[in-house]
Amino acid sequence: MSANMTFDDLKAVMSRCTGDVDDLTPDKLDAAFTDIGYDSLAVLEIASQIQREYSLQIPDEAIEGMQSPQAVIDYVNASLAAV
């Protein structure tokens, strides 16, 4: 595990959560999860998978901020840098 989350890392996490991520291309980094087919539960599942793989405890407020793939990457990287 690198100490940094890349787009491909996130994609790999999401693939383990919801299976197909073929549609997830870099131009969708800033798209809202709800617009690219990820409902609130899918985002929570992704958050839980990140907690496992990156040994993070993501607080509720941070989850509320995870509205897009880029927001997730930014949060994870900021948290990893703070460790």
Binding site: C17, L41, A42, L44, E45, A47, S48, Q49, Q51, R52, Q57
Partner: peptide
């Protein structure tokens, strides 16, 4: 298995449904 081998934060959101 996730709960007991890794801890509560490892339980996935889909478990609830």
């Amino acid at each position: 298995q996730k709960l007991y081998s890794e801890g509560p934060q490892a339980v996935g959101a889909y478990m609830s449904i």
